[in-house]
Amino acid sequence: MSPATMAGCGALALWAFLALFSRLAAGIPPLQLTAMGFAVGGTVGLAVVAATGRLGLLRQPPLAWLHGVGGLFGYHALYFLALALAPAVEANLLNYLWPLLIVLLSAPLRGLRLGPARLSGVALGFAGCALLVGTGASFPPGAAPGLLAAVGAAVVWSVYSVTAGTPRLVRVPTEAVAGFCLGTAVLATAAHLAFETTVLPNAGEALAVLGLGLGPVGASFFLWDIGMKRGDPRLLGTLAYAVPVASTLLLILAGHGEFSAKVVLATLMVTGGGFVAAKAR
């Protein structure tokens, strides 16, 4: 596995903490939480870029900003809309189409061969994810707008991820992600002020926001940018199905869930899918 693909795996590991930190900050409205998290992540990233004397790298063409801010904000806005308009189980299941779409889009957009082993691996991973997050899904007709938003979120994130490595965008330096995070924070703040009531976080929630900004909605996007531009998106897409499994295990360890045969079976299926994909040549 190349160093760039390992960086992408680092992003997946950080995203496993998203549910736990979000649970600890549950008293904060979602758009406000998004704005605060991205503000922390963007500010820390900007400080690192400034310390290395590379602030000039934030001067990028409009296409790069449209891709970066549009991908980060567009995904989160559609995902929160999906959770507001559709049952969480169904919305989460459809949202987790994004790893599968990353694998499938790698062929037409990046010219990367798939092959039966990779397709089998991602199918097994999706089946494990469906078993874990989709049990009892019924897709009620009245939730159609929310379900469409969940599919839209999956499409936006997969397209954002795969196109990051295309010729027109691969030259955009990872340092520019700091600016994209701050741009996302600005848009999330505007959406929050328009649709939510501001809540002052307590000490525990403030620490959870800090954790989010440093990891799942901070460093993760820098690592994911490296993985998508210089790593193997087919393997990363398959391994992404470990995120809901690891997230569930972390919630259990933190006392917010219980072990079950379903969790064990889903873990084995996702692990098996990742192994099959990793062995593909």
Rank of each mutant, 00 (worst) to 15 (best):
R54Y: 14
V263S: 04
W157A: 02
V270L: 03
G136K: 07
L114S: 01
A240Q: 00
F195I: 10
L223N: 07
G204W: 05
V209Y: 03
V172E: 05
A164F: 01
W224V: 08
G152E: 05
D232Y: 03
G70K: 03
A26N: 07
F73R: 04
G56W: 09
K229P: 08
L148F: 14
P108R: 06
A254Q: 09
R171V: 15
L212R: 04
A51E: 04
D232M: 04
G146S: 10
A203S: 03
L31R: 02
H67M: 11
V40N: 06
L182C: 06
Q32V: 10
V162K: 07
K262Y: 10
A51W: 12
L124T: 09
A88N: 00
V276L: 12
S22I: 01
G255V: 13
G237F: 11
C129N: 07
A26T: 09
S138M: 02
V170G: 02
G125K: 02
A16C: 14
A149G: 08
G115C: 05
P116M: 10
M36E: 13
L66A: 15
V44A: 06
Q60K: 07
Y241M: 00
L101H: 06
V264F: 15
A123N: 05
A254K: 11
A164Q: 10
F126M: 10
F259C: 04
F180R: 06
N92E: 05
A149T: 13
I252F: 08
T52P: 00
S247V: 15
L249G: 04
G183C: 06
G257M: 15
T271I: 14
P30H: 08
L132V: 12
A77M: 09
P62Q: 02
K279W: 12
A240K: 01
N95R: 03
H76G: 01
F21V: 09
L169C: 10
N92P: 02
S106T: 14
G125A: 01
A246D: 14
A191N: 01
E196P: 12
V151G: 00
L268G: 02
V263D: 01
G56E: 10
L63S: 12
G255Q: 08
P233S: 06
G215D: 12
G218T: 13
R281I: 11
